[in-house]
């Protein structure tokens, strides 16, 4: 329902047929033989953002460049790189924008602290209410 618009845009933005005239990169649509490596590559690809389509992971994108990126990811992991190495290789080139898993740093600090703060706030609200209620009861008695 939603990514649809991204997809539409992607299809309108790029003359797909022309780019597809070229064979896809070797590992764009091909899995690695080693299932453990493929699993690593797959979960990494789901966290990397397609450069051309703005709001999709490269695992979900039909854009040719996403295929090239998938191939790079698989090839590098097959060559022994860890997923984190591949991720930081891309972050070095495109910045944090490229990963859906925002690295913890000064910019994203508040984002990562937010859930903890919200939980503490929730517990504080709940405790405050219950405690006050007990006091009220004492007052009443």
């Amino acid at each position: 329902m939603t990514k649809l618009f991204a997809l539409i845009a992607l299809l309108l933005a790029a003359p797909v047929a022309a780019q597809n005239a070229l064979p896809a990169a070797p590992y764009a649509h091909q899995q690695l033989d080693d299932p453990v490596q493929e699993e690593k590559a797959r979960s990494l690809m789901e966290e990397l953002r397609c450069l051309k389509c703005q709001s999709q992971s490269i695992a979900d994108s039909d854009a040719p460049m996403a295929g090239d990126m998938r191939s790079q990811v698989r090839e590098r992991i097959a060559a022994g790189a860890t997923p984190e190495e591949v991720r930081s290789w891309l972050i070095e080139r495109y910045g944090d924008w490229v990963t859906y898993n925002p690295p913890v740093n000064a910019v994203t600090g508040p984002l990562w602290i937010a859930p903890i703060v919200l939980l503490i706030l929730a517990i504080w609200l709940a405790r405050g209410r219950f405690r006050r209620r007990k006091n009220n009861q004492k007052d009443a008695s």
């Binding site: 789901e46 992971s57 944090d96 924008w97 990963t99 859906y100 898993n101 984002l111 859930p115």
Partner: peptide, 17 residues
């Protein structure tokens, strides 16, 4: 800066709660 927030963040932050 430009950042992306996606499934890894949301799953990790909301899943346990």
């Amino acid at each position: 800066e430009m950042i992306s927030v996606g499934p890894p963040y949301f799953n990790l932050a909301t899943g346990p709660i």
